[in-house]
Amino acid sequence: MIKTAIVGASGYTGLELIKILLNHPHFEISALFGSEGGERIEDIYPSLKGVFEAEIQKSDVEKIAKYDLVFLAVPHKTAMALVKELYGKTKIVDFSADYRLNQKNYEDFYCPHIDPANLENSSYGLPEIFREYVKKSNLVANPGCYPTATILGLYPFIDYIENGVFVDAKSGVSGAGKKLSATTHFVKDNENFFAYNPIKHRHSVEIKEKTGLDVTFVPQLLPITRGMQVSIYAKLKKDIEPLEALKNIYANEEFIRIADKPVEIKNVAGTHYCDIFAAKNGNMLFINTVIDNLLRGASSQAVANANLMFGYDEGLALPKIAYVP
């Protein structure tokens, strides 16, 4: 069994990791770590009582380095401080943005990077595009939820569209994490719907760096717990059949489903799937994607990457049954 540690176990993505790994035939949850330690995971999430019970230890690099696989479900800056000490001692899947971008883009949108040497050692963990790199990597930068849904939608059309696309991205509230803020308060979100940080959102540079396209990115918050829908608008420079273009790229991808009508969050909530639809009006292209932000946009994608890193089938233990109804 692969001895596995989760750092940042008390967050939503940590919980989703636990749920997936409990059904994994090779990855064994051997330790949970957090910034403080001392709590028990079943006390934080009573749904785990009688299913999985464990103490959350205070993060300690020497202890963490003893495990074969480490998931870092921690914020940016915290992650790179750990990776700087852990790299070369274990295999790492990092949920933060710390290793997703080149140094200039990262420092322009986040903070000074304290571990630039390992930027060259990381692989961007979007398997449908970077699978072969992930297989050889000891450090995978797990993509953000917005970039995952957007890049998977854009990728088949990069050669067919003009530079400059508009991305209208809508996410459930769980994407903001557990910490309460003015924009994630129940009274603010219930029966409400609004854009936040339009155009300047950090994920816009991640999308641009990976696709080479200029992006106008507008994220919006839906009054739902989980799920994400992205609508992309672009101008075609070649006459193509959009659904055929999608099928040409993703025909053999198990976790990409091509739809013949606009896609719905409910059909992917609780799964690793990304559902995609596309249509054109003259030379204008509409691309529509949905994912579960906590799974395909975080935890199940992290497990898919770990599967590849250890030479297992990519889809091993990944959730396939949606939360319907």
Rank of each mutant, 00 (worst) to 15 (best):
H201G: 06
M284K: 15
G125M: 11
R296S: 01
I207M: 04
E264P: 01
K63C: 00
Y12P: 05
V74C: 04
M309Q: 05
A97L: 03
G11T: 09
F194A: 09
T184M: 04
I161Y: 01
L32N: 14
G88R: 11
E162C: 00
I287Y: 04
P198H: 08
M1S: 12
I6S: 09
V83D: 07
T13K: 00
F52M: 10
V215Q: 05
I92K: 08
N281V: 05
G144C: 01
I321K: 15
Y133D: 15
A5T: 06
F33G: 07
K235M: 03
K200H: 14
G50N: 15
F33Y: 15
I56W: 10
P262E: 04
A304S: 14
I232C: 02
E120D: 13
G164S: 11
I199Q: 06
S174T: 01
D292S: 01
R131S: 09
F277T: 01
N102R: 11
F157P: 06
P25S: 06
P325Q: 13
D115F: 00
V70G: 13
P319T: 14
F255M: 11
I207F: 11
P156N: 07
A65E: 12
A251W: 13
A65R: 12
P75V: 01
I287S: 06
V215I: 12
N23W: 08
Y106P: 07
I151A: 07
G212D: 05
A81V: 14
Y124F: 15
I41E: 08
I151T: 06
G164R: 08
Y124E: 07
K136V: 03
D115P: 07
I18D: 13
E264K: 14
V205N: 03
P242G: 04
E254P: 05
I161T: 04
T184D: 12
F166E: 14
D168S: 09
L318N: 08
V324G: 09
L222P: 12
L48P: 07
E254K: 15
S123K: 10
H203I: 00
G172T: 09
L15E: 12
Y155I: 01
H185G: 08
E16F: 10
C111N: 14
A73Y: 01
V218K: 10
R100P: 03
D275E: 15
S137P: 10
P219W: 08
G315D: 10
G282F: 05
D214V: 02
L154Y: 14
Y45M: 10
L126S: 03
V51Q: 13
V303W: 01
V324R: 15
A278V: 05
I258F: 03
H272T: 13
I199G: 01
R131F: 11
V74R: 03
Y146F: 13
G311I: 07
G38E: 05
A79P: 02
V205Q: 09
F95H: 06
I20K: 05
Y160M: 02
V324W: 15
L48A: 03
L82C: 02
A251K: 15
G212T: 03
P75T: 06
G14S: 10
L154R: 13
G282Q: 05
V51R: 15
G144K: 00
I41F: 10
C111L: 11
Y160D: 10
H113P: 07
L22Y: 11
Y155Q: 05
S171Y: 00
N142L: 11
P223D: 10
G311H: 11
I44M: 10
Y273H: 06
L48Q: 09
P262A: 05
T289F: 10
H185T: 13
E42V: 02
N138C: 02
H113T: 02
